[in-house]
Amino acid sequence: MKRASIDIWVGIFVVLGVLALLFLSMRVGNLGGTKLQDPYSLQAHFDNIGGLKVRTPVKSAGVVVGRIESIALDPQNYQAVVSLNMDGRYRFPRDTFATINTSGLLGEQYIGLEPGGDEEVLAPGAEIRKTQSAVVLEKLISQFMFNTAEGGSSK
């Protein structure tokens, strides 16, 4: 009788705790996020990646289409080499343009893909040729101040 009630309560406790952990990793963290289906990898070189981090999303038209697999420095030309883990459902033209964007003013940085018009698509392991570096914070701030000054004067 007393044993059974202890068992039930410990069971409830463990289930609640595991649910909380799942909630944290799936809903709060980026573990669940979008599952990539039969992924393939792409490479991209950037002059400057700013605050880009591993596992941050790759988006196209705002949709997550992949995640950053790894970041390294090319020892030859001192560019950052970013390898992307892409969702197999989405293929991109060879002249796709990769930029490093920031979500919101001070938000997380991510890679945005703007598809070009080429007939051929990027094969797994291929390199995205056209890239644009991250906006450096100082530039961002000056841009921001310029914009607000303009917005203020036009009112």
Partner: peptide, 21 residues
């Protein structure tokens, strides 16, 4: 929407949640 999506974008499983655990 932004409450949850920004949270998901910035909270890393390994970096944040695993370290917390």
């Amino acid at each position: 929407g932004s409450f949850w999506s920004q949270m998901q974008a910035s909270v890393d499983f390994q970096e944040d949640i695993l370290n917390g655990v």
